[in-house]
């Protein structure tokens, strides 16, 4: 078998959407930590976002399926927990897409920079948690719309 170049594999993986937030890819999310070949087996190192995130298994399955569709049948997913995932690994493309989708991207200040709907900076926190482990709920006090904030971790 002719092994595809790593860049090509990364590009394929960049088309695998996050199951919970489908506008960003698993590469944008920063959870693909590396590719390596063990003989004919491609090993993909994946790190979980939150340790209990229920999407983790689906993500591994989606990665395997996507690579198999490209002719890579011998794939092994390796879970790698160290170093721990951080939202610093989100790509710039991913951050921009999150905001377009209505989710404020993480910010080291501990809260969203601006409302993803109207851009106002008058914001209030509704809850430290949200519909997935990686999100919190905020509200814009200017346009009054609630929105998700991707927590900084």
């Amino acid at each position: 078998m002719v092994k595809p170049a790593d860049a090509e594999i990364w590009a394929w993986l960049d088309q695998v959407p996050d199951p919970e937030i489908p506008v960003i890819s698993v590469v944008d999310l920063g959870i693909i930590r590396g590719l390596s070949w063990q003989g004919e087996t491609l090993e993909v190192a994946v790190t979980p976002t939150y340790s209990g995130c229920p999407a983790t298994r689906v993500i591994s399955m989606d990665i395997e399926t996507a690579l198999r569709d490209r002719g890579l049948n011998d794939v092994r997913i390796k879970t790698q927990i160290a170093p721990p995932w951080t939202t610093d690994w989100l790509s710039d493309k991913g951050r921009a897409r999150l905001e377009d989708y209505g989710i404020a991207p993480p910010s080291p200040a501990g809260g969203p920079e601006r409302c993803p709907h109207c851009g106002a900076q008058e914001l209030a926190r509704i809850s430290q948690y949200g519909s997935t482990p990686c999100k919190a709920q905020w509200r814009c006090t200017s346009c009054l719309e609630p929105f998700d904030y991707f927590k900084c971790l």
Partner: peptide, 20 residues
Amino acid sequence: LEEDIALANTALDLIGQTQM
């Protein structure tokens, strides 16, 4: 509802850590 979600997420983190 917000507290329900917060507690469920806390539980989820703890169960995830348990797996490790």
